[in-house]
Simulated assay, not measured.
Amino acid sequence: MRPRRSVLYLPGANERALKKAEALAADALVLDLEDAVAPDAKEAARRRVCETVAAAPYGRREVAVRVNGIDTQWHDADVRAVAEVGPDAVVVPKMGSAEDVRRVEDALAEAGAPDHTSVWAMIETPAAVLRAEEIANASSTLTVLVMGTNDLAKELRAESVPGRAPLLTSLSLCLLAARAAGKSILDGVYNDVRDTAGFEAECVQARQLGFDGKSLIHPGQLEPCNRVFAPSEAEVEHARRVVAAFEEAVAQGRGVITVDGRMVENLHVEQARRVLALAEAVRDRPERD
């Protein structure tokens, strides 16, 4: 299991930020060629990001590159350049259909991208939300859906309010699509980097909904995000008791077991084993590589 609790965007044009990320406790890094880069800096940022990926300075962290959108003048050159250096993933904004996914997949293959380079599709429009199942099932190369909540809220003309009621339908539809297709899914960014309480509350909400992690815009958001999306000690201990009780029952030929006064079924055992696998994966990741 590869944890994706915290996925931090880094501006591709900012050499200092790319260097600083070597010491940050993010599960994954997205080197950004899109929103964080001004038009006149696109080509320089592309060169810098590709050089960084090729140098592999980030240890065991998952490294992705966000290219410019399919409908932009920079997209094709971004994909060709990124394919040559082979990051773990290519993040593509404003994916709107299965055809978009296959177009990116074909372009990466044509440019010689290695097999380990997957596609992450950003869901940022009402049309994409309504086609989320189609997008998620478009290709085995696509492994992650990423919610682009800022653009989505703009397209919906939704207000930004605590609890995100205007976005919950979209978030849930995309979560359903990801799980039905067996893909991971990341929540969108939280814009107010000074509002630590609001950010943590949104992390808790995302985890309760079922998201694997959250995309971030500031290193100060890493600690609460990693903590919230990791199993707590109490959850790990309960999971161990569930698995142990189940294995004992199987050995004794018993079909019904209880843990802490509650009946345990196979689905609870599967959930417990997933908690333990995630806890082990998180434990294996040092705070800094």
Rank of each mutant, 00 (worst) to 15 (best):
L173K: 14
C225G: 02
R227S: 02
V259L: 00
A109Y: 11
D32L: 01
H116D: 07
G69T: 07
V259W: 06
N226Q: 07
F246W: 07
I217D: 09
E15N: 12
R285C: 15
G213P: 06
D106Y: 10
P93Q: 04
L10C: 12
Q221C: 06
V146C: 06
L10I: 15
G210T: 14
V242A: 14
A28V: 05
R80L: 04
L152K: 08
A279G: 08
V269L: 09
E280W: 12
L8F: 04
V193F: 03
Y9V: 06
A17I: 12
C225E: 00
E270L: 15
E270R: 13
V92D: 09
G182K: 06
V90F: 01
A279C: 01
V104E: 04
E51I: 01
Y190P: 02
E287Y: 02
R102K: 11
C203A: 06
D192V: 09
L8P: 15
P162H: 06
H268T: 10
K42A: 08
E280F: 05
R254F: 04
A230L: 13
D187S: 11
V161A: 05
Y190F: 06
P39N: 03
D289P: 14
A239S: 07
A56Q: 15
R262Q: 13
M263C: 06
D27H: 14
L142K: 11
L171V: 05
L108N: 13
P126Y: 03
R47N: 13
A28L: 00
E155F: 04
T196I: 14
A251K: 13
L175E: 08
L18I: 09
P57Y: 03
R46F: 00
C225S: 01
V30P: 01
I70Y: 06
T258C: 10
D27Q: 04
H238T: 14
P286G: 03
N226W: 04
G148F: 02
A55G: 09
F199I: 10
L18G: 09
S97Q: 03
A109H: 07
G220H: 01
R283Q: 12
A281W: 00
R60H: 10
E62K: 05
G69V: 09
A138L: 03
